[in-house]
Design a protein around this nucleic acid. Structure first.
Lengths: 258, 258
DNA sequence: TCACACTCGCGCAAAGACGCTCACTCGCGC
DNA sequence: GCGCGAGTGAGCGTCTTTGCGCGAGTGTGA
């Protein structure tokens, strides 16, 4: 592996984890500890991280989707979440993807007589005290920064479920309708979710057009409905409409207050 | 553990408890009191806490106004938990059953380089902030009052795991060595756990002899080791020894403090 | 005021991390 | 084929951190 590539990966790891000991860095990068140390001193000198005895800590804010996204685009997200909540009927089983938009939706689902299945640990925290909601957690390894469950256990758990409705989150939607995600490890989970639901609803605030992401989750043909803001790119929405997707665009300003 | 990580944990502990003596800080962080003192002076100089004679107090508001901990049988449970934690080696995968004894064990496993798999949601809350522990949640339906996961999802998840060690809780042990539980719905989960571990360790404080329970989980022949208190019924312990179980009886008073 | 128990800070030794040096491998150009 | 330079891994002396013992200091109760 090229050194530049390795440096990129190291910084990515560190952004996700916050702090990492040298041994674990070497292990994750597949190099010796000596090389890991060399990389660390390089990146420390370049000001990309802070070296500490025994490892390194991320410089700047740790990549925490929840903290980072919490402030920005909140009104739009809540408008989407409220509209999504209105489509859920009592008695249904809904499957909630990871992310902040689905967390917002979970808040709007409090007190409803429904079953919620999720790999979103933030949703678990939100609904764990609600006696009305039957809460089902998918299994899997805990990813602390993303507050999610991933891994083969999650996928196999999804194989045993069938939900009335899936609310899918995303990190970005391309103009041609491809739905993206940033982290590779979540992709198989999301795809297993798609297969485990009768009705697939994509939640995407205006900022998700085009948003970010490198891994493809699915295309418009896999989606039944899309709930988004009116500020979203009209061209992309048209692509979804042409693919037969029921598109609902709610205005953040009108709906955005509580 | 990295010093930076340790400092983070120390501050978190302090935010939760408000005031902490040096001894307890050292105990919770798994370091000597000397190191705890050094950390305290560092963080005091950095203005992150206020040093007082004998310990430290949080600077800023306390998050949790001191949750009332279950007093009864606590010393005995902690003695069992500490002994159990000592048998776990770094790198192992341990499976933790539901219950308060295994929760106590989880507290003792903080900061260890191990993988913890559990259906115990209290264990999840305890370890979710620990970067050292790889945490795997079994899937299943959330049982709020028992803080556990149950159901077919839990069992099938266990079918995909194989742990080095299972720490099994119980509600009661009969004189003939039958291990009991009170709730039928947990029985298949516990039995699936038995099948998913190489080494089965039963944790049972003195109060569990005979304890309560209506459903049979397993017999002595399914257990490899039993960790209990010295006050436990000698006859029952003899039954386990005859079945080839390695019985460890730790005294709550002697082990209860350090 | 005094005595006792506890805490604190310092010196020291062991363990582990660091970084320097050296040998080796791989790709490249002559 | 052969030399060359960059990059990696391993060995080894140095330095940091940690845990423990000891004398000094501090708080508490008689």
């Amino acid at each position: 592996m090229l050194r530049e590539t390795r440096h990129e990966q190291l910084l990515k790891l560190l952004r996700e984890e916050g702090v990492l000991p040298v041994g674990r860095i070497a292990q994750r990068l597949g190099v010796s500890e000596a090389t890991a140390r060399r990389d660390l001193t390089d990146l420390d000198r370049a000001g990309m991280l802070t070296r500490v005895y025994g490892g390194a800590v991320a410089r700047g804010p740790v990549e925490r989707p929840f903290a980072a996204e919490e402030a920005e685009g909140r009104a739009g997200r809540d408008a989407v979440a409220r509209t999504a909540a209105a489509t859920v009927e009592d008695g249904e089983t809904v499957l909630l993807d990871i992310g902040t938009t689905t967390l917002q939706l979970a808040r709007r689902l409090r007190g409803r007589s429904i079953t919620v299945a999720t790999s979103n640990l933030a949703v678990y925290d939100e609904l764990k005290d609600d006696p009305e909601v039957t809460l089902v957690l998918l299994g899997g390894q805990v990813r602390r920064n993303y507050r999610s469950l991933v891994g083969p256990l999650t996928q196999s758990g999804l194989g045993q479920l069938y939900a009335d409705r899936l609310f899918l989150g995303t990190s970005g939607v391309l103009p041609d309708g491809r739905v993206l995600d940033t982290t590779d490890v979540e992709v198989p989970v999301k795809q297993a979710m798609l297969a485990a639901a009768r009705h697939v609803v994509l939640l995407a605030t205006a900022r998700k057009f085009p948003g970010t992401g490198t891994a493809r989750i699915c295309g418009p043909q896999d989606i039944d409905a899309l709930i988004t803001n009116q500020a979203s790119d009209p061209g992309t929405l048209a692509v979804f409409r042409e693919a037969g997707v029921e598109v609902t665009a709610v205005d953040a300003e009108l709906e955005g207050r509580r």
